[in-house]
Amino acid sequence: MIQSIVAPRQMIIGGGSLSRLGDLLKQFGLSRPLVVTDPWMVSSGTVEKCLEPLRAAGMSPGVFHETVPDPTDTVVAQGVAVLQAGDFDVLVGFGGGSPMDTAKAMAILAAAPSGTPMSTFKVPYAADQGALPVICVPTTAGTGSEATRFTVITDVARDEKMLIAGLGALPLAALVDHELTKTVPARTKADTGIDSLTHALEAYVSKRANSVSDMYAERAMRLIGPHLRRVYKDPEDAAAREAMMLGATLAGLAFSNASVALVHGMSRPIGAHFHVPHGLSNAMLLPAVTRFGLNHALPRYAEAARCIGCAAPGDADQVAGAKLLEELTALNTELEVPTPAAYGIGADKWNGLLPVMAEQALASGSPGNNPRIPDAEEIMVLYGEAYR
């Protein structure tokens, strides 16, 4: 079987590795970076951690900091205008998934003729061209965007989260420094941690899984399983933060080379319509969606439970699968994941949007990778289960 495997050309991983950012750019002959980040990174001064090693290398980085949670096509267009008004040769995505995804989308959109809408590039389009290389520096342990060929951008006019996939979204390099996660709030650690667990689990049970993505997914689950609760409870636990950061990157490599599935397909419309953070909407859905597909890929789910550590090596598949469902429910309880109702989403608005959300979930293509492929009615039922 022929497998096409993609990954950044270089990844520098480890505490304190951010200091090597300037050298990394020079290694690729790059010297005129535009740093893409968010307003908090600038107002808190955190962006200086990224700018200092660039200046120390003799560079004069520009900064675009207008990114927003759940990045939008309008913000991407603003970023492209800044990019094209300057003399830049590389984009540096610095922050969580939103700045990294924005930088990727900027590179793709800037390669297209002026006036091309971002929606042109949503799947099944192959977004393989980027105007500039992208280097990613994650500050949260969750999205894995630093290692993937995907970006997710919201179409503001249609309230639709668009999955964009292709080599144009694949970073040239990534710098993964777990020390950057020390001050991340506990809520964000929980949401991004469950996001990375979802990436690994969905890649593992996906119909597009392969031997290489399995290797990444299994190792990611073995890192995330024992450390997610620890990093949530104790921000000083450096070993747990390091394990989660590496686990998130490996999970990104896993789903970039396999795929995500039904959880992500259903999660994106929740984010688009109700502005729920991506990792949190994944967490809201994960137990119900796992229960839905469990018996259609029981050996895979059972092995995932063993990797996570909630099932023993000798547990029969049915026992291990049941323990996985128990673990996912317990995680949501311990990490204080609200239901959509508890989050404040009204039942009338939720129910009124179910047909649209189901349609958008199916259109993303991700549900087709699930072990059990749902129709629109089944997706609406799952949304109802998650809501309650």
Rank of each mutant, 00 (worst) to 15 (best):
V381A: 13
L51N: 02
R306G: 03
G314L: 15
C136W: 02
A112D: 04
I308Q: 01
A217C: 09
T139W: 15
A288R: 13
R229S: 03
T46L: 14
A376S: 14
K26I: 05
L325F: 02
A316L: 15
L83S: 01
A363R: 14
M1N: 08
A56H: 11
E303W: 13
R268K: 13
A251C: 12
T198V: 10
A304M: 04
L54A: 04
A56K: 15
L201R: 07
G384S: 04
L362V: 10
E327S: 08
V92I: 15
P299A: 07
D375F: 15
M106K: 03
A111R: 10
T120D: 03
Q84S: 01
A358R: 01
I194S: 00
R9G: 06
G365M: 11
M162L: 15
A288D: 13
P299H: 06
S44V: 06
L223K: 04
M284G: 00
L250E: 07
L331T: 01
T148L: 12
V231E: 06
G252S: 11
L132M: 02
A239Q: 13
L18C: 07
F121E: 05
G352W: 03
P226I: 02
T72M: 03
T329Y: 07
A57Q: 03
I194T: 04
M162W: 14
G247F: 11
